[in-house]
Design a protein around this nucleic acid. Structure first.
Lengths: 226, 226
DNA sequence: AGCTGTTATCCCCATTTAGGGATAATGACA
DNA sequence: TGTCATTATCCCTAAATGGGGATAACAGCT
């Protein structure tokens, strides 16, 4: 149960007054400008620079950085895949995805892979600086356009929903809770209604959806949103 | 198909050099301090102050504000519900949810309801100012802790995927049918098993997934699917 | 003034489900 | 050889659910 696998701690490190940062970027030009930028921040030390995902998975785990700046578009292994694997090897590292405005559609896979932030690399030193600080303090830096995409993700679910069936607001509310796995009793408590009322509502919802069980209703509701 | 319901445009407004903002907040103290704060911003004009959701739905649509600051915890109608209804009545208004740190769990319902931002009301004028600017420019202001919750939402999907791996092939087969809305009886027929057998299987599946109802199991299964 | 939809409460009853247990034949694996 | 996971069957009980109905306040519409 206890293995203690020779932790890579060559130098004793009781307390650092700087944060270790690693860089994964294949385009040399961008790589250099980022390094230059990072040198300006005296509390950050760039300890590792990789030009590919494979390289990153080998070189980054031994140095256990606090931050990783990850390009999304890498030769063979994508920055997303690299992020997912790195997160398993260096769970304490906070990974910031840097992207060229075009590949914004990768934001959801990136967040799923464990990315801790998603920024456009337009090279604003002040914004990058702020983002890195935010990362170190547990935040999730996102540009507003990316946050908007995230918000839209949630929004489009309710929009498509009432296009299918004409449920009343209250009925929809109930169905949402049902589709989250709540029991009638739990729903009743959440909405401050009696269980019998929930009962009646669900009967109507079932009729409108043409289903005969809560599981069916939940499926219908959930499958109506991408 | 075309109704054109007498748009409320009493004054002709070709171009404004300020943005109209409305306030929905029941606590008088907070209300006053927000008004005071907004007065500092000369490009904003507070055109409507409401102390309840019901009031907001009546008073806000006629004035068609550009921004709405919405408290989440209101007497009868929640700020979420009010947001959803307001969005239908004033689609062009950008609604910013203001919340006391406690009710952070409302962030998803809020985004689904159509909120355009979600901030903690800790009363930092600079941050509020920045958020309002971001709103007017199409951004979605969120505090980093809230953005983090959003990111975690995507992450937990992969987590449940791991739990599903623990299921045996037969158990997975059952769960798939369950998640299609079939009853135990129907599943039994489909797999040529007795209902009691289905019963036993589901008990085990529930244990492994840490759920207590078929609806919960279905939701967990479906949310783990791409 | 009547109709319809929404919200909300309550009753009854049959079926289904959830949770607890026991049992047994497989095949894998150590 | 024993243990374990998987597949499969059966029994029991309490709780939850599904389907049927009645009732009532209220808002909006005609």
């Amino acid at each position: 149960m206890n293995q203690l696998p020779a932790m890579p701690l060559p130098t004793s490190e009781p307390a650092r007054n700087f944060n270790k940062i690693a860089l994964v970027e294949d385009k040399q030009e961008t790589q250099e400008s980022l390094i230059q930028l990072l040198e300006m921040f005296t509390d950050l030390k760039c300890v590792c620079v990789c030009a590919s995902g494979e390289e990153a998975l080998k070189q980054i785990p031994p140095v256990q950085p606090d931050l990783v700046l990850m390009d999304i578009f890498l030769p063979r292994m994508s920055g997303i895949e690299c992020t997912a694997r790195l997160k398993a090897l260096v769970p304490n590292a906070r990974i910031l995805i840097l992207t060229a405005s075009a590949d914004q559609e990768m934001v959801f896979p990136a967040l799923e892979a464990g990315a801790d932030g998603y920024l456009l690399k337009q090279g604003d030193p002040v914004k990058l600086r702020a983002a890195l600080q935010e990362l170190l303090h547990g935040g999730v830096p996102m540009t507003s356009s990316i946050a908007r995409r995230v918000a839209d993700f949630f929004r489009k679910r309710t929009k498509t929903r009432d296009e299918l069936v004409r449920l009343s607001p209250r009925e929809t509310e109930l169905l949402m809770l049902l589709a989250n796995g709540y029991s009638n009793k739990e729903i009743a408590v959440k909405l401050s209604l009696t269980v019998e009322t929930i009962h009646t509502y669900l009967k109507n919802v079932y009729k409108k959806l043409h289903v005969h069980s809560r599981a069916e209703a939940a499926v219908k509701y959930l499958s109506s949103q991408p």
